[in-house]
C-alpha cells in the first residue's frame, strides 16, 4: 500500500513567544534535535514548528500503514536536516528559494520529508518514493472556520484528482476511524490512491501520489 503525509503550520496562528519556551518545545522536539538547531538558518520558533510539521507529516504517512498509531512528537525523531538553496518539490506550485529535507524515524519506519518555509506557513510532505510522483498544493482561504477548511481542501483535492484520474467518476473523500483520508470512486475505496491533507488558519494543503508505487 502506498502512503503520503502532509502537514501545514500557519505561522500567523502560532504564539512565537510561547513556542520558544523550553516547557513548550520540549514536548515537540528532543534534546538531540535541539542540538542540531542553527540560529543562522532560521529563528528558533520556525525550527520548532518545522520539526512539528515534519513529525505530523510523518505520522500521517505512518498511520495509513499502521492503523491505531498514536502521535508522539518526541518519539518521532528527525535527523539530517538539510537546507537546499533552490529546489522544486514534486509537482508543486512554483519554485521556492529554500527547501528543507530531513530523515524521520517513526515507530520503526524510516521516511524522508521535504519542507518549505514561507513568510506565511511551513509545509512538510513525507514520502518514501520519488517526489516526482507527488502532486501537492497550498491554498489561502478566506474563512478559517474548521468546517470551511475541511470543505475547501476536499473540494480542491477532488478537482485535482479528476485531472490525474479522469477515469475515476463520482469521487468523494472519507476518513477512516483513525482519521486517514480515503479516496472513494463510485462507492469503492481506492486504497492505491494515497492522499493526505492539512489545514491551519487561513491555509489548506493537500498531497497525493500521482503514480502509485508498485
Amino acid at each position: 500500500m502506498s502512503s503520503i503525509g502532509i502537514d501545514i503550520v500557519a505561522l500567523h496562528e502560532v504564539d512565537i513567544q510561547r513556542t520558544i519556551l523550553p516547557k513548550f518545545y520540549s514536548k515537540i522536539i528532543t534534546t538531540a534535535e535541539l542540538s542540531c538547531y542553527d540560529p543562522a538558518a532560521m529563528p528558533l520558533y520556525q525550527y520548532i514548528w518545522l520539526l512539528w510539521s515534519v513529525k505530523e507529516a510523518a505520522y500521517k504517512y505512518a498511520s495509513r500503514l499502521q492503523p491505531g498509531l498514536v502521535f508522539s512528537p518526541t518519539r518521532t525523531t528527525v535527523s539530517n536536516i538539510s537546507i537546499h538553496a533552490t529546489a522544486t518539490v514534486g509537482h508543486g506550485p512554483e519554485l521556492y528559494n529554500d527547501a528543507i529535507t530531513t530523515d524521520v524515524l517513526i515507530n520503526g519506519l524510516p521516511l524522508h520529508t521535504h519542507s518549505i518555509i514561507t513568510e506565511n506557513y511551513i509545509v512538510s510532505i513525507a514520502y518514501t518514493g520519488s517526489f516526482d510522483e507527488v502532486q501537492w498544493a497550498v491554498r489561502h482561504i478566506k474563512d478559517p472556520h474548521p468546517d470551511n477548511q475541511s470543505a475547501m481542501v476536499r473540494q480542491l483535492v477532488i478537482n485535482e484528482l479528476g485531472n490525474y484520474y479522469p477515469q475515476a467518476n463520482n469521487i468523494t473523500i472519507t476518513k477512516t476511524v483513525d482519521g486517514v483520508p480515503e479516496v472513494v470512486c463510485n462507492d469503492i475505496v481506492k486504497n492505491e490512491m494515497a492522499l493526505s491533507f492539512s489545514h491551519h488558519g487561513h491555509y489548506v494543503a493537500y498531497a497525493f501520489v500521482v503514480a502509485p508505487a508498485a
Binding site: 510561547r18 516547557k23 491551519h200
Partner: peptide
C-alpha cells in the same frame, strides 16, 4: 471539537499551569 493539532501542546501547557502539575510525554 475540531481543535487544530498544532494547539494540542497549548492545551497541555495550559493544563500544567492551571493545576501546577507536570504532564510528561
Amino acid at each position: 471539537l475540531k481543535i487544530n493539532s498544532a494547539n494540542l501542546v497549548d492545551v497541555i501547557i495550559d493544563a500544567e499551569a492551571k493545576y501546577n502539575v507536570e504532564i510528561d510525554y
